[in-house]
């Protein structure tokens, strides 16, 4: 046998007699992959945290936007804490329109009063015309008297000459009086016509005004009613929005609770990665020379790993897995509403 053949034989014998040596070599080869796996675990945990942070931020933005929208609409409708409200504006409009209509009614009453005064004036003017007729009668009678006086003066002759002059003067004055009373009668007639015409137009205007005022009142009331109804509907919508927003807030709160699985999951991954690091260190050391020491080392490692846990779930799962039971992973981060372990010192 040559040297090479002897080496090959010894190698085979060695593999048969010392299988552990072969196994240790394989494990050493495998150990080189552990840092990569560890890094993968840590990176996965970081990526998960980043994703959960993003989701959490999105939820918060949704909640903030929703709250801002509700607050803005509440402010606009005046159902919030701030400033002038639509309800106040509607009430102010209602009061202003009522005041305006009252003024219109007042103006109508004044117009009625003015018409009554005009009719009184018309009657007074009518009275003045009657008086003027009396004056005209007196003037006519004076003319007759003057004529009779002239006739009588002619009968008397020279003695009646002075009396005739007086009769002539009376006749002339009676003529002037007739001319003046005719002028006055014409002016009075014109005045009466003007007053009558103005009163008639004012009456027509008033009749229209009363109808239009009533129409305006009805239209304003209807507009205010529509505005008020719209406002009520908007308020109802805001109430629904507020309720929905509160629901959204509660659901986001629950989502926050549920998203905390990531923290627990991340911690478990970190503990696994830490344990893998310990394994790497142990596997890099020389193999123990007898089985008793190996068992001690295994128990020591398991205890060390167990001690590194920070969560009850982890410890329970570890104990069950160590005993060989197929341990289902306990649900993490799932709480009933309001359940939370608190202790105040």
């Amino acid at each position: 046998m040559n040297y090479t053949a002897v080496r090959r034989l010894l190698s085979r014998l060695s593999a048969l007699l010392f299988p552990k040596r072969r196994e240790r070599l394989n494990i050493r080869e495998c150990v080189t992959t552990l840092p990569v796996l560890r890094a993968q675990i840590r990176e996965a945990a970081r990526n998960l945290e980043s994703a959960v942070s993003g989701i959490c931020g999105n939820f918060q933005n949704i909640a903030d936007r929703s709250q801002r929208a509700v607050a803005k609409v509440e402010e606009m409708l005046g159902s919030g804490q701030t400033g002038g409200s639509v309800e106040e504006s509607i009430e102010t409009s209602r009061a202003t329109i009522s005041l305006l209509l009252q003024r219109l009614e007042h103006a109508g009453q004044i117009s009625s009063l003015a018409i009554a005064r005009m009719e009184e004036i018309e009657q007074t003017v009518q009275g003045m015309e009657s008086l003027l007729e009396e004056v005209q009668k007196i003037s006519f009678a004076s003319k007759i008297v003057a004529l009779n006086a002239k006739i009588e003066a002619v009968h008397v002759g020279a003695l009646g000459a002075g009396f005739e002059v007086v009769a002539e003067e009376i006749s002339r004055q009676a003529e002037r009086t007739t001319g003046l009373t005719d002028g006055i009668a014409n002016r009075i007639q014109e005045t009466r016509n003007c007053v009558h015409s103005a009163a008639g137009k004012l009456k027509e205007f008033m009749a229209d005004d009363v109808t239009q005022s009533e129409d305006s009142r009805n239209a304003a009331q209807a507009a205010l009613h529509v505005l008020f109804t719209s406002h009520q509907n908007a308020c109802d919508s805001v109430a629904i929005m507020t309720s929905e927003n509160n629901q959204l807030r509660d659901e986001i709160s629950q989502a926050i609770v549920n998203l905390q699985f990531q923290d627990r999951f991340g911690q478990r991954l970190a503990h696994v990665a830490d344990a893998m690091e310990k394994m790497e260190n142990l596997l890099g050391q020389p193999a123990p020379s007898f089985d008793g020491s190996r068992a001690d080392s295994r128990n020591s490692l398991l205890e060390e790993v167990h001690a590194s846990y920070s969560m009850h779930d982890e410890r329970v799962a570890h104990t069950r897995l160590e005993s060989g039971a197929a341990a289902p992973i306990p649900p993490a981060g799932e709480l009933e509403a309001g359940e939370m372990e608190v202790e105040l010192f």
Binding site: V257, G338, V342, L344
Partner: peptide
């Protein structure tokens, strides 16, 4: 935690309203 001066101890996960 108590010895160090903590006022209270809350176990995660927390519930926002309870917190």
């Amino acid at each position: 935690g108590k010895s160090a001066g903590a006022t209270g101890w809350i176990v995660k996960p927390f519930h926002p309203d309870r917190l």
